[in-house]
C-alpha cells in the first residue's frame, strides 16, 4: 500500500511538491520536527549534546511497516519522559526526495521537541558508528544515558514496555548513572 502510494506520488511530482509544501507549513504550525539531512557526525552530536538525561535514537523509514507500527510506542514513551530530559532523535533512512512524506508522517506524531533527520552519507560508517552489532535492518533503536554512553540496542521493533524497562534499569541501582533522578527521585 505504501509502495503504491509512493509510486502514485512520484508519478505526480507537481502534486507531491504542492502537498509537501502544505504539510511543511502544517508541520511548523504544530511545532513538530522538520527533517534536516544528517550524517553520522550530526547524529552523534545530537546524542552527546549536553542537557539530556537520556537519549533514544530510532532509525526508521516511511515505507517500513514495522517502523511505522512501532512509532506510537516510541512517541508514548517520549511524551512520558520528555519533561524529565529524555531526548528523542528520529533518523529517517528515506531518500531525501521523500522529505515531504517524512515531514507529513512526523507532523502526525505530535512529538514536539523530537529531533528529526534524514540520513545522508555512507551507510556502513553510519551503521557501525551507531553500533557494530547492527546489521542495517530497519527499524533499529538505541538508548543512551545522559553522558552519551550507549546502554541498549534493539535490532527490530521496540515496545513501550521494553523502553520503560531499559530506562528503569539505567536509573536503577545496577546502573552507572541515574538519568531520571531529577524527574523521579
Amino acid at each position: 500500500m505504501a509502495v503504491v502510494l509512493a509510486v502514485a506520488l512520484a508519478a505526480l511530482p507537481g502534486v507531491a511538491i504542492g502537498r509537501g509544501a502544505a504539510r511543511q507549513t502544517a508541520t511548523n504550525r504544530a511545532r513538530a520536527p522538520g527533517p534536516r539531512s544528517a550524517d553520522l557526525a550530526t547524529v552523534m552530536a545530537e546524542i552527546r549534546a549536553p542537557g539530556a538525561s537520556a537519549v533514544l535514537v530510532n532509525v526508521w523509514a516511511t515505507w517500513c511497516d514495522p517502523c511505522r507500527e512501532e512509532m506510537p510506542e516510541i512517541v508514548r514513551f517520549y511524551r512520558r519522559h520528555r519533561a524529565d530530559g529524555l531526548r528523542l532523535v528520529l533518523v529517517s533512512a528515506d531518500d531525501p526526495e521523500r522529505r515531504p512524506e517524512v515531514a507529513r508522517f512526523l507532523a502526525k506524531l505530535r512529538a514536539a521537541g523530537a529531533r528529526a533527520f534524514i540520513k545522508t552519507g555512507d551507510d556502513m560508517a553510519f551503521i557501525n558508528g551507531l553500533d557494530a552489532r547492527w546489521s542495517g535492518a530497519l527499524p533499529a533503536s538505541f538508548l543512551y544515558d545522559g553522558h552519551g554512553l550507549e546502554r541498549h540496542f534493539w535490532p527490530g521493533p521496540v515496545t513501550y514496555r521494553e523502553l520503560e524497562g531499559r530506562l528503569a534499569e539505567m536509573a536503577g541501582p545496577g546502573g552507572t548513572t541515574n538519568p531520571m533522578a531529577k524527574g523521579h527521585p
Partner: peptide, 20 residues
C-alpha cells in the same frame, strides 16, 4: 564492538546490552 563503543564515548565501562 568494544572498539566502536570506546571511540564513540571515550570511555566504555561496559558494553551496551542488546535485545535479540
Amino acid at each position: 564492538f568494544t572498539l566502536v563503543t570506546t571511540l564513540a564515548v571515550g570511555s566504555a565501562s561496559s558494553p551496551a546490552s542488546a535485545s535479540a
